[in-house]
Design a protein around this nucleic acid. Structure first.
Lengths: 333, 333
DNA sequence: GTGAAAGCGCTAACAG
DNA sequence: CTGTTAGCGCTTTCAC
């Protein structure tokens, strides 16, 4: 394995010139540049990034903390992050935390020990249960919630949930159920707020029985459906807002298994607009989050921070879109 | 930011002792060890991994090349990889190549420039269109195909496709269609082989019209369905093998839109067993690949290679499972 | 069991 | 525009 010294020797220049030829070619004469490139070719030189990064005190790597990479929405956010980072010469270390705090801490150590320059967190901030923000750690939150105490890019979760609920009400539904994530999850909190605002605005009284707690998985959506199935038919919601598409998909399965027709007997609206939601039967009405854009914006924010710049906006809110498909219909009779 | 020298000074020992206390504690006296740990605490020392890795000529990082992270199957393989790597103190750099050769090359440079020690490739090997194997690059292929010229962990794709087709034949189906990936994709080739073996064994003549080319996306599955819909009804397959679940899901949508009832009019079998396949309507009969296990096995192989060990088995074949659900039924009348 | 010292391969003043 | 030189923070001989 050849090094910068070998190149310098063959090219007949100093190692400084070789170094400059690579990282600041404009400061080197055409002639030297040519010699250096020929020498590089000849000795098959590949710069040792381990050495370069060490010397520069930068890893040119970030780590992304994601609760579950198998979740399509998260995967798409990560793709956006990676795309931007790649363009800027940064690597992205994957930190699939599987919702375990210990793993989050483990991955954060990469930043503390300089293996990574910064971190993008995909888990929403929760007071008392967050490893971020932290001193000396440059971080941004992606797809998070209101009132995140460090730079954050997100959508208006409450507003989106209100939009979806308003729509169901406009369809004539009065008994509107909701499938949430875990009760203390900030996404649950924000979206529940929007749901309740909508109910209040329409003069509908909130009912505990209309809330089924899930955990953002298909499986938990199916369980949530069973909760509603158990209610007497005249108290059962005629429409349901699910706080993500996975749970909506699970719920549809659960309702159908119980002989409840979707959307004939019950309308359902999801959240996220993952790809498969266009293909389910019925196709899912849902809130479309711009997953990749969220990732890209978060990456750009982090890059600015890493360059030592101040951020103009610490809470960057991207627009969502409400997509009507066939899982929601006017209340029958 | 404190360094090893600060620790040594406070502890009253040499920097060599501090270094040893951290990487080979058994060679240091209890007394020194205690002093060192107290000093570390006092000056808040975090070892600089950039320096350590540079000095050790190892990045303790690998890169994983994945065609598309938004594909649930790939995501699960990556999760398996990451889990093992994490346990062994290695980071995993994400290389979502989006099926672009240029991006593959870009990411491979990380290995050549020592930012990563090795690579796991999730795209199957294709002669004449592969950046691997490559001299001086330690690599293993995960979820690949037969005859991969470097270490590989996979399932028996041909066997699995044959199993699925045999099953459809046993259900009385004679006209059996297949939705493939791109024609030159090795997975397409291997699985098509199994499909044809099954047909031959049953004395059914292969028919060109029964093959629709997709590209492993839901969208392309939907298009493939339209190809079959265009065939005269008495020549149309009564059962279809889709080379992955995504295309099967797209195809179901396509058939249903055309008024074809699944599984009443047409049985369909998928491949991979991604999570959502349990929740579709009808639930998908499919070949279950042990995605995480494949990832873990590939990671363990790479780790062995990185430690300079020889591999006992260069083609590690894991078992698949055939999962019967409701998308496949006996041929009607 | 411990310390002194020599670098790993590169970058970045600094002087010319 | 170019070369000399002093390290970055750590590991690892080699003596003692």
């Amino acid at each position: 394995m050849s090094n910068i010294r070998d190149v310098a020797k063959v090219a007949g220049v100093s190692i400084a010139t070789v170094s400059r030829a690579l990282s600041a070619p404009e400061t080197v004469s055409k002639k030297s540049l040519k010699k250096v490139h020929e020498a590089i070719e000849q000795v098959q030189y590949k710069p040792n990034m381990l050495a370069r990064n060490f010397r520069r005190h930068r890893a040119f790597t970030i780590v992304v903390l994601v609760p579950n990479m198998a979740n399509t929405f998260f995967a798409n956010v990560v793709r956006g992050i990676e795309d931007i980072m790649q363009q800027h010469g940064f690597g992205v270390l994957l930190g699939d935390t599987r919702d375990q705090r210990k793993r989050e801490e483990e991955y954060l150590k990469l930043v503390e020990t300089r293996q990574a320059d910064g971190v993008i967190q995909l888990r929403p901030y929760l007071e008392g249960d967050s490893i971020l923000p932290k001193n000396d750690i440059i971080a941004v939150n992606a797809a998070g919630c209101e009132n995140t105490p460090y730079p954050c890019v997100r959508i208006d979760n409450a507003g989106a949930a209100k939009t979806a609920t308003d729509y169901l009400i406009s369809l004539g539904h009065q008994r509107i159920g909701v499938i949430t994530g875990l009760a203390n999850n900030p996404h649950t909190v924000d979206r529940l707020k929007g749901y309740q605002q909508s109910l209040t605005a329409a003069g509908i009284e909130f009912c505990e029985d209309w809330v089924a707690e899930g955990e953002f998985t298909m499986w938990s959506g199916l369980n949530a459906a069973q909760h509603f199935v158990r209610l007497p038919e005249d108290e059962r919601p005629t429409a349901i807002l699910s706080m993500n598409d996975e749970m909506a998909i699970g719920a549809i399965k659960g309702f159908r298994t119980a002989g409840i027709n979707i959307p004939g007997d019950l309308s359902i609206v999801g959240f996220d607009d993952i790809e498969v939601s266009r293909y389910t039967e019925p196709a899912l009405t849902t809130i479309a989050q711009p997953a990749e854009e969220i990732g890209k914006a978060a990456a750009n924010m982090l890059l600015k921070l890493l360059d030592g710049n101040e951020l103009r906006n610490l809470d960057y809110v991207l627009p969502y879109e409400f997509v009507v498909r066939s899982s929601s219909v006017p209340k029958s009779n």
